[in-house]
Amino acid sequence: MTLLAKNLTNGERELIAFRIGDQEFCVNVMSVREIRGWAPATPMPHAPQYVLGVINLRGAVLPIIDLSARLGMKPAEPTVRHVIIVTQVRNRVVGLLVEAVSDILTIKDEDIQPTPDMTSEFERTFARGILAIEGRMICLIELEAVFPHIESEAA
């Protein structure tokens, strides 16, 4: 955890990397509030398929998004080994269901490579860039792009 306190100013940033299926993704640590285990969610009527429902996070009602389904992959089948990354996007707090948290990375801005042109429009809306770490490929996710529907539907 000492890593977190270090060097956030000189172009370096901390990322939390997690796994969905055989792919790795990461988000900026600054938008992560906490990581907690899976708890059964209360399904919401008329919700998009990737919204698993809501859980009680110490008194607040927290919607849970199946990130796998949201990214257009196979819907997750939550088990006790799944984790929820509680993230804050603008004023809303949303839980992301992922398979496991794998790493905390400290990277420089220049380490982020642009997403290749070949990817489809769909992937490019979520992917801010890709990282090459120890021979692995990790996709940096743009959280704002994951939940734009919340804003539009509220209107």
Partner: peptide
């Protein structure tokens, strides 16, 4: 009573 709108959105019927 807990707000749904705070973190999610209005759900019709709820």
């Amino acid at each position: 009573i807990k707000s749904l709108e705070a973190n999610y959105t209005h759900v019709p019927g709820i």
